[in-house]
């Protein structure tokens, strides 16, 4: 019965995944791939769990390597995605106007260039 529950969750999640990213502009294909790449960094949860249940040298070695790999995936994945998206600041924010105030590291101040479409063409 438990296996069936998991299977239900799996299939429904697949369907959500198919629907969640429709009609995305080509501009965002690379950041989106990178973001999805970061999400599967959730494997770190699994790596931690096996680390906690390990009790042989071989088990520790596997868990250690899994933790290294998974942590690199999740931390690096989110960081590089954020760096990419940092380039796509909304024009209001770029012009130093009333954009989101909480954007850390975004160089404030108007650069004098015009604002306009968001580039989300189509």
């Amino acid at each position: 019965m438990e296996a069936l529950d998991d299977l239900t969750v799996f299939v429904l999640s697949l369907l959500v995944g198919f629907e969640v990213i429709s009609r995305v502009p080509a501009t965002l294909h690379t950041p989106l791939m990178s973001a999805a790449n970061a999400v599967h960094g959730v494997v770190l949860v699994g790596a931690v769990l096996i680390g906690a249940s390990a009790h042989t040298p071989a088990g520790y070695a596997l868990a250690f390597l899994a933790c290294v790999f998974a942590a690199a995936n999740v931390v690096g994945g989110y960081a590089v995605t954020d760096r990419m998206l940092h380039m796509f600041r909304p024009p209001a924010e770029r012009a130093g106007a009333t954009g989101e105030p909480g954007a850390p590291g975004a160089p404030g101040g108007g650069d004098g260039r015009g604002t306009g479409g968001t580039g989300a063409a189509r």
Binding site: D6, V9, S13, G17, F18, L32, H40, V43, V45, I50
Partner: peptide, 23 residues
Amino acid sequence: GFALDNSMMVIAGALVGASGAIL
């Protein structure tokens, strides 16, 4: 996620699998 019986890993993995396929 299945092997560890962790439904969140199942959800996140399936989500990336499907959206990655569409992408």
